[in-house]
Every structure is written in structure tokens, then in C-alpha cells.
């Protein structure tokens, strides 16, 4: 099976998976939200495949994506492999750092907040806080994964200037592959997460099937973010530094260490506009409570992902022809 047929397979897999989850939500709880979710999932499928239904000759969005992937699959494969290889090339433990890094971070923060600051079970209202180590680890893994992807993508256009000015390659490939290669790390760190969860007695059940959906939401959101950052940094180099400050602010504004319950009411309401809060909560729900997140929550996550992706892609496409004059 070659790379491009794997991609085709993966796309159809994702479509079936999305529809499956939406149908499950409708069966579980036939509320308005779950019907909207089914509608959104159906719309996505229609967008990807539907143009075939309207006219036989028209290419579907999916087949266009496949054609691009097919033509550049070898390049994408090589670029992702390059990032992955060079990252650990000169380290002794190599890929184990992907496992070790979040664990060490978690250990430090756990020690600081539980032992030094006695922050355990703030308010006691949130049952997830009973497993504070897992609670903390989910937050750390997702936020640092997101942050890492964004930082890599941000530099992808500027650092590949020598390539962009000499060879024609669709420019979206650069930020996309950077998010993919940094995203592999995020996916790998799910393994230590489950080790810690098992140690805490949290055996996964069927709700774990929703975990890939959570990661997919984060991936799509991050790709959109990567497009936005990588294209804007071409024109304004100081965005790199601004982003450094902004991402630190964002980290503290997200309930990673603390629980949303300790915040004043007004800030709790504002938190609803923080996409990362929703993503982290979505994953925590699956890992700690071992329940399927509600249709409403799933819809909110999907809306943030698709919205960010659309914004990022639009900005990137509008500006990409001018990159060459600024890099």
C-alpha cells in the first residue's frame, strides 16, 4: 500500500468515523444539539464528496485534496521524516524524549502545586480533580503540543526561504508538514498519559474511541493557527516575539494547573471563548470521567476548529503570492 492510497484510506476512515459519532450522539440523546451535530457531520461529508452528486464531471474537494497529496506525497513524507529525524539526531535517548518530556513537566508542576502550594481539590466541586496528576498531565500535553506545533509552523515559511525562492512547491505544504511532524509528538505523548491514568486506576472503556476526535479537532485548529502565524510573520517579523508573550498569556489563561471553578463568574463566562479550554476539557472528560462528551461540547470544539482553519487558510491563500518579495 503506497502513501497516497493510505491517505485516501485515512480520509474515508475519518468520514465514516465522524458520521458514526454523530449518529451515536443522536441515538444516545435525541436533543437538538445532537441533531445539529449530525447535520454538521453530514455537511462536512457533503463538502468533501458531494459535488459528485450535483454533476458527474465536477471534481470533488476530496479528490482534489487527494491529487495534491498524491503529487507531493513523497515530498511531504520526506519533510516530515526530516523534521522528526533532526529533532532527535544528536540526543542519546532519541524519541523517548517525546514520552519523557511531558512526564517530567508534570512531575515538576505536580510537586510545586500539590506539595508546596497545597492546591489539591480546589473547591471540591469538580470530580476530575480527584485525579490531579492525570488532570495536570492532559493539560500539559495538549497545551505544549499545541504551542510546539505553532512555533514550528510560525517559522516554516521564513526558514524555508531558500527553497521557496528556488523551487516551486505549493507553499501550504511547509506549515502543514511542520504541524504534522510536531503533531506526531503530541500523539506519542498519549502513551505516557495512559500509563499515568492506569497507575491511578483509570481503566479506559469504549469512550476512548472519542479520543482521536479530540486530537483531530486540535490538529485542525493548530493547522489553521499555523497558516495564520506563518503567513503573517513573513510581513511582520516581530510577530515571532509577540507570539512568545501571547502564548505564555494563553497558557495561564487556560485551566491547565487550576480548575475553572476557582475563577470569578465573569471570567468563567469568558473562558467559553478559549478554544483550548474546550479541547483540554474534551480530552479530560474522556480520560478521567470515561464518558462521551455531550453533543453540544463536541459542536463547540468542531466550530472552533473549522473556524480557525477557514480563517488561517484564507489569510494564507490571499498572501502567499507576495511571500517571495518579503523573505
Amino acid at each position: 500500500m503506497n502513501f497516497s492510497s493510505k491517505i485516501t484510506f485515512a480520509f474515508y476512515g475519518i468520514i465514516v468515523y465522524l458520521l458514526g459519532i454523530a449518529i451515536y450522539q443522536v441515538i444516545r440523546d435525541a436533543s437538538a444539539w445532537s441533531f445539529i451535530l449530525l447535520g454538521v457531520a453530514a455537511l462536512i461529508c457533503f463538502w468533501l464528496l458531494g459535488s459528485k452528486l450535483i454533476s458527474k464531471k465536477k471534481q470533488t474537494v476530496l479528490s482534489r485534496i487527494q491529487a495534491t497529496f498524491h503529487r507531493f506525497s513523497f515530498l511531504i513524507e520526506q519533510l516530515v521524516a526530516r523534521d522528526f529525524k533532526t529533532k532527535y539526531k544528536r540526543s542519546v535517548l532519541g524519541v523517548f524524549w517525546s514520552f519523557l518530556n511531558p512526564l517530567l513537566m508534570m512531575a515538576v508542576q505536580y510537586f510545586v502545586f500539590v506539595n508546596l502550594m497545597k492546591l489539591r481539590n480546589m473547591g471540591g466541586a469538580n470530580p476530575m480533580l480527584d485525579y490531579y496528576a492525570v488532570y495536570l498531565l492532559v493539560g500539559i500535553i495538549i497545551f505544549s503540543g499545541f504551542n510546539d506545533c505553532c512555533n514550528q509552523a510560525l517559522r516554516s515559511i521564513v526558514y524555508n526561504a531558500s527553497l521557496i525562492t528556488k523551487v516551486y512547491v505549493p507553499k501550504v505544504i511547509y506549515p502543514t508538514t511542520k504541524v504534522f511532524s510536531a503533531g506526531i509528538n503530541l500523539a506519542l505523548s498519549i502513551l505516557p498519559l495512559y500509563i499515568i491514568a492506569l497507575i491511578n486506576g483509570l481503566w479506559p472503556d469504549l469512550s476512548i474511541l472519542l479520543l482521536p476526535l479530540g486530537l483531530l479537532f486540535i490538529l485542525v485548529f493548530t493547522i489553521g493557527m499555523g497558516y495564520l502565524l506563518s503567513s503573517s510573520v513573513v510581513f511582520f517579523r516581530d510577530i515571532e516575539f509577540l507570539w512568545g508573550v501571547f502564548s505564555t498569556m494563553w497558557m495561564y489563561a487556560t485551566p491547565i494547573i487550576y480548575d475553572i471553578g476557582i475563577l470569578p463568574n465573569i471570567i468563567q463566562k469568558l473562558m467559553m471563548f478559549n478554544p483550548l479550554y474546550h479541547y483540554i476539557d474534551f480530552v479530560r472528560y474522556i480520560v478521567i470521567l470515561r464518558q462521551v462528551p455531550s453533543a453540544q461540547e463536541t459542536l463547540i470544539c468542531a466550530a472552533f476548529s473549522l473556524g480557525m482553519f477557514a480563517i488561517g487558510l484564507t489569510v494564507f491563500k490571499k498572501t502567499e503570492d507576495k511571500f517571495i518579495f518579503y523573505i
Partner: peptide, 11 residues
Amino acid sequence: LELGSGFDNDL
């Protein structure tokens, strides 16, 4: 146009 523009020194 220019040779070796995509080389990676660590590989």
C-alpha cells in the same frame, strides 16, 4: 537555478 538549496546539514 541554484544547487543544493534544500540540503539539511544534520542529515
